[in-house]
Write a protein that binds this DNA or RNA. Structure first.
Lengths: 146, 146
DNA sequence: CTTGTAGTTGACCAACTTGGTCAACAATAC
DNA sequence: GTATTGTTGACCAAGTTGGTCAACTACAAG
């Protein structure tokens, strides 16, 4: 199992947008600074997220990015599917006709069982959920410092 | 989520060994033919599995490979860990000190939750389990052909 | 209508991983 | 000693990942 850093970046960016939801638009330069994500890389991620309808972007001065929908309606699964590439768990899963071991292949079920479990967790966690957790984690860090 | 083909190959090889457990040793050439795995590639996989104690290998004529333990004691998790590479879910999980977003990082928990779920499924499935499923799947193919 | 700002797009890159091959070597049975 | 079979190391092509850069486009303000 492996989560591409893009996805982690994307989640952090969305989290940043959720936290600054009162502002009409957040510039990618600001997100980049706050979240320590290389800006030109972040730009591409935001572009992809925008194309997949998770973010609304506006150019020019006063431009920037904002969540396109309620943070509770954006799940990690969506981010994963948007940024995570093709994510084909194993070749024969979506091209079973090309699998020459099909005559009695017991592991296909297991691999898709795994995939389902992952999807269930990711689709069950929204940016809103994560924002709550993040704030809790931050509070913990602060109280530990005192 | 993505299962490297090596792991799938490895599982099939072990399944083949389990099915031929009555023979003292199975040659990699035979496994290669039956399971449609390129032999020289299969050889490396078997070597790795042997180093991790899942397989016992003997050279020379009458040589070959055999399961080193009971099929019920070999889980897909073991195969995954043996062949699947480093499998670091995301950098900061095992090197949290290198994570500069640590001050309030809510997603680390989610990523490890995902990892745990995957491990639970993989560790809960043994080669013996899979052999049963495989035979059932084969029976189904045969009955469908009639 | 120009100017500055900020997102968009395409080309490009280094590093790494994956799946795979090949030749030489070592152990062992006959 | 010879044939057989696993072991080891070197090597490879192709694809992916994380990342950069320059040019381009939209838009607000003056």
């Amino acid at each position: 199992m492996h989560i591409p850093i893009k996805v982690d970046y994307g989640v952090r960016a969305l989290l940043d947008l959720a936290e600054h939801a009162q502002e009409p638009a957040v510039r990618s330069a600001d997100i980049s600074l706050r979240q320590h994500i290389p800006q030109s890389f972040l730009d591409r991620l935001l572009l992809t997220l925008a194309k997949d309808g998770l973010v609304r972007s506006v150019r020019g001065p006063l431009g920037g990015h904002a969540l396109a929908r309620d943070p509770a309606q954006v799940t990690l699964g969506m981010v994963m599917r948007s940024l995570g590439g093709n994510e084909t768990i194993v070749g024969c899963l979506e091209a079973p006709e090309s699998c020459n071991h099909l005559a009695g292949c017991g592991q296909r079920e297991i691999w898709s069982e795994v995939e389902d479990a992952v999807q269930r967790i990711l689709d069950g966690t929204s940016i809103a959920d994560l924002l709550v957790r993040t704030k809790a984690a931050r509070a913990l860090v602060v109280s530990a410092a005192n």
